[in-house]
């Protein structure tokens, strides 16, 4: 059961946690007088490295633009969080090696997996693209299904938790492997709205490494369903009063 009172409390709690986290991290950073060594990050804190497998996938925040230097043929992995009611969208751009060093067209592919490493379908976008020999860059996009707060265990519906991004070359002349490329990845999420506000709850999938989204794993307690339902109730009440007045009216006119 999802109770209306519960969501705000968890929100408050997570806000407090966040504040505490901010305090601690800034304190830690100040003490060390340098950013933590493991976080190889750019100026705005966005990661500048990619992982090479599910286990080493670099953590991304929603809306962050991560970059990575790699070689053609590398498998690049990132992970980002998504909560219920969100429709995640991933965009990846690869700056290809100089045209002079390439020998043919190359097919690049973007795959998105959920926290259980199950491949997720793209509802729209172009996850696979062929770059011709002259292209300087290639951009792939993938929009996932709306993340649901609950799904039956036999379903592979997207659930709250971590999502893995895998970016790789799937086809190119053998001679073009190993050349330097620069990849850029961004994961965003769109609110799917009240029409997709669902009930239920599961513990987020493999979410230890990623940070909970702003609205929590289960999405915000608010949806326009509240407005529709309350509005309907008010309308019903008004209609009831109207109906009652309608039946009383003839008697008043009879008395006059």
């Amino acid at each position: 059961m999802r109770l209306p009172f519960k969501a705000p409390t968890t929100r408050a709690a997570s806000a407090a946690l966040l504040a505490a986290a901010a305090l601690f991290t800034s304190a830690g950073a100040a003490a060390a007088a340098s950013p933590s060594p493991s976080a190889s990050a750019g100026e705005d804190g966005a990661p500048t490295e990619a992982g090479t497998g599910f286990r080493t996938a670099t953590v991304l925040k929603q809306g962050q633009k991560a970059t990575a230097d790699a070689s053609t043929g590398d498998y690049l992995y990132w992970q980002f969080p998504a909560g219920a009611g969100q429709q995640p969208q991933v965009k990846a751009t690869v700056n290809l090696p100089e045209a002079a060093t390439r020998h043919g067209s190359a097919v690049w592919q973007l795959d998105v997996y959920d926290g259980l490493r199950r491949r997720q379908a793209c509802t729209s976008g172009e996850p696979t693209k062929r770059a011709s020999e002259q292209d300087t860059s290639v951009t792939m996009t993938c929009t996932l299904r709306t993340v649901r707060p609950w799904a039956e265990r036999w379903a592979n519906d997207p659930l709250p938790g971590a999502y893995y991004i895998r970016l790789t070359l799937t086809d190119a002349p053998d001679r073009d492997h190993g050349l330097p490329v620069k990849a850029e990845v961004e994961a965003t999420a769109k609110d799917a709205g009240g029409a997709r506000a669902e009930g239920g709850e599961v513990a987020p999938l493999h979410a230890a490494a990623v940070k909970e989204p702003e609205d929590g794993w289960n999405g915000s307690w608010w949806s326009d369903r509240w407005a529709w339902t309350v509005g309907g109730a008010v309308l019903g009440a008004l209609a009831a009063i109207g109906g009652y007045v309608l039946t009383r009216h003839p008697r008043r006119s009879a008395q006059q």
Binding site: W150, G200, R225, W226, A239, A240
Partner: peptide, 28 residues
Amino acid sequence: APDNPSDVAAFGLGRGWVLLGVLALTGL
């Protein structure tokens, strides 16, 4: 794990013009 199927809709709330129509008609 909390694995609560709950209701299909969030908090069991309704949405849409049909809902409004039904509630208004019932009220009337």
